[in-house]
């Protein structure tokens, strides 16, 4: 058997299979009594109106994180690409946040925006914006989007920078000679030639926002206030590890798995057509 097949089997197929099996069961926390219930856990998910609300929050959250982190890192990469002196230092500093653990990143942002002790909250207060993400759901959502996006900027930056450096300088020069300004050169040359990188990052970032962000949400808002920052993956964590409802949690993670699978298929079929390799 090929080693990669074995890895897939052990680290993906087996746990995924366990999740599917678990999603058909209703169990007490300690696993002392087990009942096979077919699709009841799924039925419960889809009849719960809050689940759709969570789905909607997830869509806003993921779109926000993806747009913000990719936008900012593209901007930074374009600028870093033009830096001549001290480029190494600049790049190193930008890659740093990637080494920060999600929960720590969350706590950092939480401290800066803490309504009582936060520096940024204080500054916002002086310009007349009352910041209290413990109470204001939109502010809370914005805060977790910023924290989650910040965490991913370094990763995107690295790929964008590599992509930019692969674009031949001669193309820019030719366009410049033809009289194209920097803005036009960016949109007609750089951006299209960068599209394979952008597409790859789009897939990675959406998957990141869907799956990898519960640490940040847990550290910053715990899904609140109300359920304004409760995303699908946070719900899986909360029901499974806090509520100890393993069946319901497993069913949700299977739904999430299918959802991300579908999204990736859509991305490859429709978005990829616009990509120029």
């Amino acid at each position: 058997m090929a080693p990669q097949l074995l890895v897939t089997l052990v680290f993906f197929i087996w746990p995924a299979g366990q999740a599917v099996w678990q999603s058909f069961l209703v169990e007490d926390a300690f696993g002392l009594s087990t009942e096979f219930v077919w699709f009841e856990n799924y039925a419960q998910i889809f009849t719960d109106s809050r689940y759709y609300h969570t789905l909607w929050t997830t869509i806003i959250f993921s779109a926000g994180v993806t747009l913000m982190s990719m936008g900012v890192s593209l901007l930074l990469a374009v600028m870093a690409d033009q830096v001549v002196r001290g480029a190494q230092v600049y790049k190193t500093l930008l890659i740093w946040p990637y080494a920060v653990a999600p929960a720590v990143a969350g706590v950092l942002w939480l401290f800066m925006f803490h309504p009582t002790v936060g520096v940024l909250a204080y500054m916002l207060d002086t310009i007349g914006i009352e910041w209290n993400h413990f109470l204001d759901g939109d502010q809370a959502l914005l805060l977790v989007i910023i924290a989650a996006a910040w965490k991913q900027i370094s990763y995107n930056f690295l790929f964008f920078l590599a992509g930019l450096q692969a674009i031949p300088q001669s193309l820019h020069e030719a366009a410049a000679i033809d009289g194209a300004g920097p803005g036009r050169r960016f949109f007609t040359i750089t951006f299209p030639l960068l599209s394979p990188t952008t597409f790859f990052l789009l897939v990675v970032n959406v998957v990141y926002a869907f799956f990898d962000t519960f640490g940040i949400i847990h550290a910053v808002t715990k899904g609140g206030p109300g359920d304004s920052t409760r995303t699908l993956v946070y719900n899986v964590f909360d029901d499974g590890f806090v509520g100890l409802d393993l069946g319901g949690s497993a069913a949700q993670s299977v739904v999430l798995m299918v959802l991300v699978g579908l999204m990736t298929v859509v991305q490859f079929r429709f978005v990829e057509r616009k990509v120029q390799y």
Partner: peptide, 16 residues
């Protein structure tokens, strides 16, 4: 544990 979280959520909706 979860019921307390539900109460937290619902009360936060009242405060806001």
């Amino acid at each position: 544990v979860q019921i307390r979280d539900i109460i937290n959520e619902e009360l936060e909706n009242v405060w806001s």
